[in-house]
Amino acid sequence: MDSFFFLLQALASYIAIAAFLVVLNVQKQMLIPGGLLGMLVWLIYLSLEGPTNAVIATFTAAIVGSCISQIMSIVLKTPSVIFSLAILAPLVPGYRAYMTTTYFVSGEHATALVNVTTVITLSLVIPIGMASGTVLLRLYKYMKLRYST
């Protein structure tokens, strides 16, 4: 992956996530941090998809994004749901779901079934990863509190 492609992906993902947050009527001062978080999650996914696969890349990006969103919500004193939406937007397998429908309509049922299982797996991995990130952060806080005294 060359640096121009990576930079272009970063810019496009930031604009897309910020626009998504505007559509959801998020406060103006949360558009930049939310867009940056969504961009980071997309770049993590993009970086990991090549060496691994889409499921592992999605799971890892969801965990990292969830941890960062919890921290950002504390630092910026805002509900974490805003940042959860910024994580969710780049990870939803919309294109794969669209292609699955296209394969079913065009009669390529074997390819469609493979895509259906991938879409369902990704749809399950996203909330599991986001919940895992929250649990990991809480576990870290608990361990830090317990072993610091």
Rank of each mutant, 00 (worst) to 15 (best):
N53H: 12
N53M: 09
N53D: 15
V55E: 10
V55Y: 09
V55K: 07
I56M: 15
I56F: 15
I56E: 11
A57V: 03
A57L: 08
T58C: 05
T58P: 00
F59T: 09
F59P: 01
F59N: 08
F59R: 06
T60W: 05
T60G: 02
T60Y: 04
A61T: 05
A62M: 10
A62I: 12
A62W: 08
I63E: 07
I63K: 04
I63W: 08
I63D: 08
V64P: 01
V64R: 03
V64C: 08
V64Q: 07
V64N: 04
V64H: 07
G65E: 08
G65W: 03
C67F: 11
C67H: 01
I68N: 07
I68C: 10
Q70E: 15
Q70M: 14
Q70A: 12
I71C: 08
I71T: 14
M72P: 06
M72S: 12
M72Y: 10
M72V: 05
S73G: 10
S73V: 09
I74P: 00
V75K: 12
V75W: 12
V75I: 15
V75C: 05
V75L: 15
V75D: 02
L76N: 06
K77T: 11
K77R: 15
T78F: 11
T78K: 12
P79K: 06
P79H: 07
P79V: 05
S80K: 14
S80W: 07
V81E: 12
V81A: 13
V81N: 13
I82D: 04
I82Q: 02
F83N: 07
F83M: 05
F83P: 10
S84H: 13
S84C: 08
L85R: 04
L85G: 10
L85W: 00
A86G: 09
I87H: 01
I87T: 08
I87Q: 00
I87M: 04
I87P: 01
L88K: 03
L88E: 00
A89I: 15
A89R: 11
A89L: 14
P90T: 09
L91K: 02
L91H: 07
L91M: 05
L91Y: 02
V92C: 03
G94I: 02
G94T: 07
G94P: 04
Y95C: 08
R96S: 15
R96C: 06
A97R: 06
A97P: 06
A97I: 14
A97F: 12
A97D: 06
Y98S: 00
Y98K: 03
Y98V: 01
Y98I: 03
Y98N: 06
Y98D: 03
T100R: 00
T100D: 00
T100C: 07
T101E: 10
T101D: 09
T102H: 10
T102K: 12
T102D: 13
T102L: 13
T102I: 14
Y103D: 15
Y103T: 05
F104L: 13
V105N: 02
V105P: 14
V105L: 05
G107P: 06
G107Y: 04
G107F: 04
E108P: 03
H109N: 15
A110D: 14
T111L: 14
A112R: 03
A112Q: 01
A112S: 04
A112W: 00
A112C: 01
A112D: 01
A112Y: 02
